[in-house]
Simulated assay, not measured.
Amino acid sequence: MKRFLQLLGEMSHYRLPQAKLALQELAADDELVIVVPEQSLAGEIQQWATSEGFTVAAPKKILDGLPRWQLSVKKATPVPVEEKPPAAAPTPAAASTPAVAPAPAIAPTTAG
C-alpha cells in the first residue's frame, strides 16, 4: 500500500520524529512517500531509514513553486528463516557395532 506524508508546514524539530513514527507503522511491503522542504532533512530520513533496514530511493528534487524534496521508503518483506531438522540420533545397534575392526598390534623386531 502506498502512503504519503508531507512535512512542509511542520516545525523543523518535529519533522524527523514524525517521519520515524510513520515509518515504524508501515507493514511489510508498504511504501511511504515523504515530502520535505529541505535536502538535509531528506538526507537525515534516508540515513535513518537505511540503518533500520528500509529500502530508500534516492531523494529527488521537486520544482512545484518552492523547492521540495521527495523520497520513497519501502519496508522490505522479512525473509523466512528455514529451520534445519534435528540431527538423527544413531540407532543403538549401529552405535555398539564398530564400523572397522581394530588392527592387531605388531611387536617390533630387533636385527641381530
Results as ranks from 00 to 15, higher is better:
Met1Ile: 07
Ala57Pro: 02
Ala99Asp: 09
Trp48Val: 01
Asp64Glu: 02
Val79Glu: 14
Glu83Arg: 07
Ile45Val: 12
Ile34Met: 12
Ala103Lys: 09
Ala76Glu: 07
Lys20Met: 10
Gly43Cys: 13
Leu66Ala: 04
Ala88Glu: 12
Pro102Thr: 07
Ala42Ile: 04
Val73Ala: 15
Met1Leu: 11
Ala94Thr: 01
Leu66Gly: 02
Ala22Ile: 05
Ala87Phe: 00
Ala57Leu: 13
Pro17Thr: 02
Ala87Ile: 12
Arg68Asn: 04
Val73Asn: 15
Gly112Thr: 13
Ala99His: 10
Ala88Thr: 09
Ser72Trp: 12
Ala93Pro: 00
Lys75Phe: 02
Asp29Gln: 15
Ala103Asp: 07
Thr50Ala: 12
Ile106Phe: 11
Ala93Phe: 09
Leu21Val: 04
Pro59Asp: 12
Glu38Leu: 14
Pro37Ile: 03
Val36Phe: 11
Val73Arg: 10
Ala103Pro: 10
Val73Gln: 13
Ser96Gly: 05
Met11Ile: 13
Gly65Pro: 03
Lys2Asn: 06
Glu31Cys: 04
Gly65Tyr: 01
Trp48Ala: 02
Pro98Gly: 02
Ala27Trp: 04
Ala27Asn: 13
Gln70Ala: 06
Ser96Phe: 10
Leu32Val: 09
Leu32Gly: 06
Ala87Leu: 12
Glu83Trp: 03
Pro102Asn: 07
Gln46Gly: 00
Gln70Ser: 08
Ala27Gln: 12
Ala19His: 11
Val79Met: 14
Lys61Phe: 01
Ala19Lys: 06
Arg15Tyr: 01
Pro98Ala: 04
Val36Thr: 14
Trp48Ser: 01
Pro90Met: 03
Ala107Leu: 11
Ser51Gly: 14
Ile106Ala: 09
Ala87Gln: 13
